[in-house]
Nucleic acid binder design. Structure first.
Length: 333
DNA sequence: AATGAAGGCAACCGCAGAAGG
DNA sequence: GCCTTCTGCGGTTGCCTTCAT
């Protein structure tokens, strides 16, 4: 054990590789194979450490490297595998021919991770974030809605302001008001839940517990029944910081909501009890950003109906069922 | 057109495990 | 069993490019 001393040697070049260095390395390996990486630089006439040569070869010069953007299928594979094994980039790379662990890692950090965060998902656990700050943008938007509703209520009390109120509601009729009222009720529940959590969290902890979320859900009179993984059918989450294999029901407050949620979307949300948490996302979430790709992913997930990304612990299906015979999977389960 | 910010990616660093003496 | 060397991996950094102002 112990750290390799090769990079401690002085006088070795670092930084970007020149085309000449690439050519030397390429020709040497094609002729002799890489053999010992430690001795390779000297034999190949390179003023680099073996590590640097190995990295350059595996990440760039290798002939089977695939270039270009990741396909939707590759994205799905990464998401699926990451939801199971976490940041095991080299393991994930073995299932993506032509892709290097470094490339996958970069792609994850620059694209997929951000996208999950935008959707309100914890990129490590692939489950909805339930902490207050994750929901803050939605809460702010809904608070704005509340102001609008207050204005509408004032207008109703004052007939002379009715016209102005109708403008506020932008042509909405009684149904629209009812919908807005339902949204407001939900907002109040969320705010109550968040407030309770902050009050009870004490120093450090800001997470809204599933209990709080459920409380908000029931307070909002959501008809959704609590969906959970049947006992004993835990979803494996060996990622660092991952949840234990417990259950996380599809709760209303798990789902990001923005102020422009349409009436039918709200209805879907309220009726989402029969579906798992991610189905709620896929069917009714307004885009928080460019989520078109994610929707594709969701659709793909729905087709396979087995990713914890799709259903979290709520999903009745599990990874072992998805790749039942894959030794790669069973190694990690 | 100039400049700063953000994004993307290649490469480095350091740790840990495997292998061999 | 211990030590040394080598390799592989994951996290992080820094540079370059693109975008926004």
């Amino acid at each position: 054990m112990g750290r390799s001393p090769c990079c401690d040697e002085r006088g070795l070049k670092k930084g970007p590789w020149t085309p000449e260095e690439d050519e030397k390395l390429l020709q040497y390996i094609q002729k002799n194979g890489h053999g010992s990486w430690r001795t390779l630089p000297r034999l190949a006439g390179l003023n680099r450490c073996g590590k640097s040569c190995r990295l350059r070869w595996t990440n760039y010069l290798r002939p089977d490297i695939k270039r270009g953007k990741f396909s939707t299928e590759e994205e799905q594979t990464i998401l699926h595998l990451h939801s199971i094994i976490g940041n095991k980039w080299s393991a994930i790379a073995t299932h993506l021919p032509g892709r290097t662990d470094n490339e996958i890692k970069n792609f994850w950090n620059t694209h997929l991770k951000k996208r999950l965060i935008q959707m309100g998902y914890d990129p490590m656990t692939h489950r909805p974030r339930t902490d207050f700050f994750a929901a803050l943008p939605q809460l702010i938007a809904l608070a704005s809605l509340r102001e609008q509703l207050a204005a509408a209520a004032a207008a109703a009390a004052d007939p002379t302001a009715a016209a102005a109120a109708s403008q506020v509601l932008q042509g909405g009729g009684a149904d629209h008001v009812a919908i807005q009222a339902a949204k407001l009720q939900y907002l109040q529940c969320l705010l109550q839940s968040a407030g309770d959590t902050i009050a009870s969290a004490g120093a450090g902890a800001i997470g809204v517990s599933a209990h709080d979320a459920d409380a908000a859900l029931s307070a909002a009179d959501c008809s959704a029944s609590q969906q959970g993984t049947p006992s004993g059918s835990a979803v494996p989450t060996p990622t660092s910081g991952g949840h234990p294999s417990g259950q996380m029901p599809c709760t209303f407050s798990d789902v990001p909501v923005s102020s422009d949620v349409e009436a039918n979307q709200l209805g879907l949300l309220l009726d989402c009890g029969a579906a798992d948490g991610f189905a709620c996302h896929g069917n009714s979430l307004p885009p928080l950003a460019d989520l078109s790709d994610v929707v594709n992913l969701v659709d793909g997930c729905s087709a396979t109906a087995s990713s914890s990304f799709c259903g979290g612990a709520s999903s009745p299906l599990h990874w072992p069922e998805f790749f039942p015979d894959d030794p790669f999977i069973t190694d990690f389960l």
